[in-house]
Design a binder for these strands. Structure first.
Lengths: 240, 240
DNA sequence: CGCAATCTTGAGAATGCTCAAAAGTGGTGG
DNA sequence: CCACCACTTTTGAGCATTCTCAAGATTGCG
């Protein structure tokens, strides 16, 4: 029985059978949610804690003029902030990008679990630190890298994250987001994302067929992006 | 006896006299650190928890080509990640921008304090959530806003944060960073920061004399930046 | 007072944007 | 099963914002 949450947390700490059971029970309440659906909305009081067990989600903020900035991708095994209940209002929206399975758990239930399973609590704290490090890396991406480098970096990171939960082969994975969504992620326009993708293909670095991304030349893609997986804390972070 | 850490945390929770005492003891070990000094370096194993009690610091990451991205400013009352001890390596450097007073505390000492003072623990969790929300807002800033808007937003945020710890008047504060550092913060070049500052002055929005920033027209600066202070969770977030 | 860092200015160039339209894709209802 | 429609991807051309390089002015510190 595949459970990305368990697979992810086991990358950080040792889990007991009881821990794994608890996580299985968490994931068992997951429900199907269609693509492009808001899960929690900016400005609302925080409700439940959310876990994604299947599909890709994102966090985003929107400006009055409609401009949108995606601030994170959520892959299976990811959660929203655990401490979310400490806030009165959320500062951003969480939505699905592809069809997802989403588990919602009350803050109380989660507190019970973390109190009874310190290993889980510890792993989730580590996971939160990684999310924050990823956010910093995205800021570096938009602040310091060229268009081509940004896309390359995003793809490197996405592939490594999916590999960590067993949802990618060594060189390829699903890439459900549209070019428009990639644009909202990287602070570029759709047109320029399209041209950058073509350039990556022309250089023989990647192949994009439908919603599938295949990395053809990992060393060169990695080096173009100046991608160092350390901040993701996954095993084999220096792999390839 | 002025203590920005206490002032900040009291914005989030009620503190008892014992809580305040503990925080006073924390701040009492603060030592002087000159401007432009690294406090903890990227790639090193995490050492102590750091508190800034005076002066302005920053977090940054650097690319191989020397390009630097500042990912956060630290103002008095701010700390580095509390959970830092859970990591093997830091993903970014923390440094002073102006001369600072910095307190270093071992993870053990801090754990003792948070265990004996739940209100402090809670306030620090809230503080960490705000730091993360601020990071998201910076991503929006660089990803979605024009050069002029970015600087305007940065100034709005900086002034509100300093006001929250009593280090700014209603319309002005110290601004110790150079234009080069503002450039590293906003993903622009020094030259363009300079021209944007001139434009803000030309429009009568701000006044910059030496290291002092004075906002001349808060409503228009705020509206240009589309600044909404909600994510900072300070009292009077709707002020002006 | 002098040096180094910071700020300012100018001019040309490049990266990425805007607008517009065409081509391709997928899903849905008749 | 086909036709249609909406969405996504692709292409072109002109343009704006921002960058690069270079040099001069100003400031502050030792």
């Amino acid at each position: 029985m595949f459970n990305p949450l368990i697979q992810k947390l086991e990358g950080f700490v040792e889990l007991s059978d009881a821990d794994r059971d608890a996580l299985h029970r968490l994931a068992s309440v997951a429900r199907d949610v269609p693509a492009r659906t808001n899960l929690v909305r900016e400005g609302e009081p925080p409700s439940d804690i959310i876990f994604i067990t299947e599909g890709i989600g994102c966090r985003f903020k929107q400006r009055a003029n409609g401009a949108r900035q995606i601030t994170a991708y959520l892959v299976p095994g990811d959660t929203c902030d655990l401490d979310i209940a400490l806030l009165n209002r959320l500062d951003h929206t969480i939505a699905t990008l592809s069809p997802c399975k989403v588990a919602r758990v009350s803050a109380t239930t989660l507190r019970e679990i973390t109190e009874n399973h310190p290993a889980i609590a510890r792993a989730m704290r580590i996971s939160a630190l990684i999310d924050e490090a990823t956010l910093r890396e995205w800021l570096v991406n938009i602040g310091c890298r060229s268009a081509l480098e940004r896309i390359a970096h995003l793809f490197c990171e996405f592939l490594v994250r999916l590999r960590a939960v067993g949802l990618a082969t060594e060189d390829s994975c699903d890439l459900p987001m549209t070019q428009h969504e990639l644009a909202d992620t990287t602070g570029m326009t759709t047109v320029h994302v399209n041209r950058s993708l073509q350039e990556l293909r022309r250089r023989g670095l990647i192949e994009l067929k439908g919603k599938n991304l295949k990395v053809l030349d990992w060393p060169r893609l990695r080096s173009l992006a100046e991608f160092k997986a350390g901040y993701l804390r996954v095993d084999g972070q220096t792999m390839f």
